[in-house]
């Protein structure tokens, strides 16, 4: 009797799992005719606030209302991503959009996409492969982000620049691009690096705080915090507050953060921080524009295309920027996140 119950429960479970799949197939066959088929291979939204905004943006832009029949796979596992991409190619999608978990191992998939006539766009992350294996890649230009920050800093006309550099995950594209600008400025004598630390692989707030605390307690003099993301800038500012060092608008230390989290933008707006540089997760609109232009007869772009990204300081920030370009939850106008 017990065995019978178990078997019947198992059957019920299998049926339950099959039904959504069956429905999905049904849906697809009724609605594909006039829509552009797009397969999106992406990382999971819980990876970061950046990714959450990215995934949402993809879903919003590549919707049936905009003329797309799009499916998105979210996984941080490279082999699962490759399997999903192969699935999309078999399904006969028109366009394949990839943000790869790992930069290598994609050659075969990209070649089979090419031979199947599927156009491949890379977004946010590049893949180590021959440029002929994909149509175009839309990514953030980390080096330009770094240069933007350093140019802003040098335009402040401080009598001297003593910088605490807080790097992100060593070797990541963001860390390399954003650090390069500071190191270049140091080599050309425009600033000195007083302390060079890292928030580690998790771009950790606590680690950033420790880097600044170590500099303060060993009596170092500095007037710039260059933190390569918002969380680390927050940790650094906590260390300044605890030590009674002024910062932000009219303060001693200039605080620079990256990524455009809404809490960070509100801090800039309140004059608590000084400058923030955008790293946009919203590539979907631009890629959609390419696809629509192709249908109208314009050729698709090729190679690596950089997104246009902006920066804000206490003078240039507006509520519109925070609402439209920010990431994550908004603490509200005038609220400082310490």
């Amino acid at each position: 009797m017990k065995k019978l119950l178990k078997i019947s429960m198992l059957c019920a479970l299998v049926l339950l799992m099959l039904t959504p799949a069956a429905f999905a197939v049904g849906d697809k066959e009724t609605a594909t005719s006039s829509l552009i088929k797009v397969g999106i291979v992406n990382l999971p939204p819980e990876e970061s606030g950046y990714r959450q905004a990215n995934v949402e943006d993809m879903n919003k832009v590549f919707s049936a209302a905009n003329g797309y029949d799009a499916k998105q796979t979210n996984t941080g596992d490279n082999s699962e991503q490759i399997a999903a991409a192969q699935g999309y190619i078999r399904d006969g999608v028109d366009y394949l959009l990839i943000s790869a978990a790992n930069a290598s191992g994609w050659d075969n998939v990209l070649k089979s996409a090419k031979s199947a006539g599927v156009t491949v766009f890379l977004f946010d992350r590049l893949i180590q492969t021959d440029a002929s294996n994909f149509q175009a890649a839309l990514v953030s230009d980390m080096a330009t982000e770094g240069n933007t920050a350093v140019n802003w800093l040098l335009a402040q006309k401080l009598p001297e620049y003593k910088v605490i550099l807080i790097r992100g995950q060593l070797g990541s594209a963001a860390e390399q691009g954003r650090s390069a600008a500071v190191l270049k400025a140091r080599d050309s004598g425009k600033l000195t690096i007083v302390a060079d630390g890292t928030g580690g692989d998790s771009w950790s707030l606590e680690e950033a705080r420790k880097v600044v605390e170590a500099a303060i307690t060993s009596g170092k003099d500095f007037n710039v915090i260059y933190a390569e993301n918002d969380g680390m800038a927050q940790g650094a500012v906590q260390a300044l507050d605890a030590a009674g060092i002024t910062h932000g608008k009219g303060g001693k230390v200039k605080v620079i953060g990256f990524d455009f989290n809404r809490f960070a933008l509100r801090n800039v707006q309140a004059g608590y921080w000084d400058c923030n540089i955008q790293c946009s997760p919203r590539q979907a609109a631009e890629i959609s524009r390419w696809i629509k232009a192709k249908a109208a007869g314009t050729a698709l772009p090729t190679g690596i295309v950089f997104q246009k990204e902006i920066f804000v300081d206490t003078a240039s920030i507006t509520d519109d920027i925070i609402a439209n370009l920010g990431l994550n939850a908004d603490p509200g106008k005038g609220v400082i996140t310490k």
Binding site: E46, D201, S202, W203, S204, L205, G231, Q234, T337, K338
Partner: peptide
């Protein structure tokens, strides 16, 4: 309470 916001990805990582 130290961080002032909840970052589910990085809070007390590792």
């Amino acid at each position: 309470t130290k961080a002032g916001r909840h970052d589910s990805v990085n809070l007390l990582k590792f």
